[in-house]
């Protein structure tokens, strides 16, 4: 227990920005493993750690921390099965992408939005498009 704590702490206080960026990158790697299992398939931390260890040097407790974070964010679902926790992706990558895009498009389409994103084009109507084509034709000449 004590050893676990210490390892977790050293992971969290890893040097500067590299530690934080590393965590985000690991979250992504964990999700890739879960998504590769296929829809609704689940895995334990040990299984995910096994897959990740093939390509990198990563501590078991680090993977556990990352998966715990993902569970708290609601991106993965944690379920107790016997003595171990099993984890699965809450949605497929395509579903998550669609959700994100829906939020983004709704945000860009609203007039009273906070400028969280700065987009290349906001929403246009059919009349706008016609006017835009005309303006573009003037640009060519």
């Amino acid at each position: 227990m004590r050893k676990t704590d210490r390892t977790t702490r050293t992971t969290r206080t890893a040097p500067g920005s590299a530690g934080k960026a590393g965590l985000g990158e690991l979250e992504r790697a964990v999700m890739d493993v879960l998504w590769d299992l296929g829809p609704d398939a689940d895995a334990t931390v040990r299984e995910v750690h096994g897959r990740l260890s093939e390509g990198r040097d990563v501590a078991y407790t680090t993977v556990m921390t990352v998966m715990d974070r993902l569970a708290r964010k609601g991106v993965v679902v944690q379920q107790k099965e016997g003595r171990a926790y099993r984890y699965r992706a809450q949605a497929t990558r395509a579903e998550m992408t669609a959700d994100l895009m829906r939020d983004t498009l709704a945000d860009l389409g609203s007039s009273e939005r906070a400028p969280a994103l700065v987009a290349f084009v906001e929403d246009a109507s059919a009349e706008d498009l016609a006017a835009l084509r005309k303006a573009l034709a003037a640009l060519e000449s």
């Binding site: 389409g109 007039s111 929403d123 246009a124 109507s125 059919a126 009349e127 706008d128 498009l129």
Partner: peptide, 10 residues
Amino acid sequence: VPAGSMGASG
């Protein structure tokens, strides 16, 4: 285009 009906910002 289909996303927004009011194209005021357009």
